[in-house]
Design a protein around this nucleic acid. Structure first.
Lengths: 247, 247
DNA sequence: CGGACCGTTCGGCGCGGCCCGAACCGTGCC
DNA sequence: GGCACGGTTCGGGCCGCGCCGAACGGTCCG
């Protein structure tokens, strides 16, 4: 019943994340997509055989689920709870001693700081902007905990995101998620995920490389309209020089 | 900024919990109290020298803070966030293969299943009962996320738990915490912690061994009154052999 | 002042697990 | 059919680290 009065269960579970390679896998999977075993191996810089073993352990431990298609082994985080766990742990982990910032990392960082997915919802400046706008519009309410208002439910409905189907799950409708780059909360939970998906479906946003997200030209005006914001606020990140990142 | 694109930071942090002894320390510290190094060593069944090294690592990693008094080294979890992290991880960890239930563990388990602290708030049947009663009384509201109502704030005020001082912190006022034994949510967050402390201050509850909590005779009537419940519901755990099967 | 007690440091031992390369299997494509 | 490719399995090497006991230092107390 209680999951082990001694620490063996907890330790065994934590050990899954206690290896740099496995931890790197999980961080990569935070983009919410399914990766193949080989992609993860290359991204982590280990041999395919090594990656294979790690994935088997992660699957056995319930952190990750796999789906075999032909000769590929697709793998993704088991559920949003796992994603949150990884985020929480990573947020507390001290930065690994003088991160060797390459130029590429820095410019990728700029795109990520502007907008990215946090597992399955929006993060970065865009995520925080969304969160703030929803508070301003009365979609969310914060007197005594974060909650979705009545007005918010019809707002979502008009956007094509009916709330009722989201209720069934054990997942909270709305939840705070502390933004790494902004150090302020953005919107997570079932509604946060549904909104992120809806924006992609509508073509208001599109995925960039990795976890990066960009706002499409059409999305810029539509989002501003829906949120009651000035479109200027949704301008792309500063590195306009090279044009928007490739889709 | 982002805490390490590679997994080294995360892995190093997770490794703190990846050892059964250190994990056991953290689980013990979930009672919210400060333990001495020796107490933890005995509880975990390791030599004092071993425990000393582990504690040094936990402190360096920020999971635990220490306070030296004379020849004692007192240690406790660094903050509620760490406690939540440990709880979340432990809840996901699979039970460690055939837990050797001793008689003593079983009877201690009964007390714990009735009422215990979950770091700094109430858990167990009592914690879930509290949570449900607060929903019934309209102190909490669950339409669209867990939130504290206006009525709830004045209810807390009458109880001697002013809400305003709780707002300053980054901690959410109210938060769900999944109960290990009941498999249903109980109340965590700043309000959950304040209530737990207030009940102890008022003498309505008292600490037992470890994380166990009991309701005092006076507290039984006072709690029932405050929550609008039948005092019978607050009866002690089933020393009464065939109590209702614990859900 | 001397003894009891708590905690730390150090040396040494042994296990576990992380890594790779090589060989093998199955799938998909030309 | 034959080749390219993704993934897995196996064996071997290596390093990290968790454990203990012994010795030492600091604190409290009689």
């Amino acid at each position: 019943m209680t999951t082990g009065a001694d620490g063996r269960g907890l330790a065994g579970f934590a050990r899954l994340l206690a290896d740099p390679t496995r931890a790197g896998f999980c961080l990569a999977l935070l983009d919410g997509r399914a990766w193949t075993a080989g992609e993860l191996a290359r991204a982590a810089g280990v041999a395919a055989s090594t990656a294979s073993g790690h994935l088997t352990r992660l699957v056995a431990g319930g952190l990750v689920v796999e789906e075999r298609q032909g000769r590929h082994r697709y793998v993704r985080l088991a559920d949003p709870g796992v994603a949150q766990l990884v985020e929480d742990l990573a947020a507390r982990a001290p930065a690994p001693a003088a991160p060797p910032r390459t130029l590429r990392a820095a410019s990728a960082g700029a795109a990520l700081a502007y907008a990215r997915t946090c597992y399955d919802h929006l993060a970065g400046r865009l995520g925080v902007l969304l969160h703030d706008a929803l508070l301003d519009r009365g979609v969310l309410d914060r007197t005594g905990g974060l909650a979705l208002t009545e007005a918010g439910m019809s707002w979502l409905d008009r956007l094509g995101v009916p709330v009722e189907p989201l209720r069934g799950t054990r997942r909270p409708l709305v939840r705070d998620c502390l933004d790494w780059t902004e150090r302020r909360p953005h919107l997570a939970g079932a509604v946060g995920a549904a909104l992120c998906g809806r924006f992609l479906d509508l073509g208001w946003t599109a995925r960039g490389n990795g976890r990066a997200v960009r706002v499409t030209p059409a999305g810029r005006d539509a989002l501003a309209e829906a949120l009651g914001l000035d479109p200027v606020l949704l301008a792309a990140p500063a590195t306009r020089v090279t044009g928007p990142a490739r889709a």
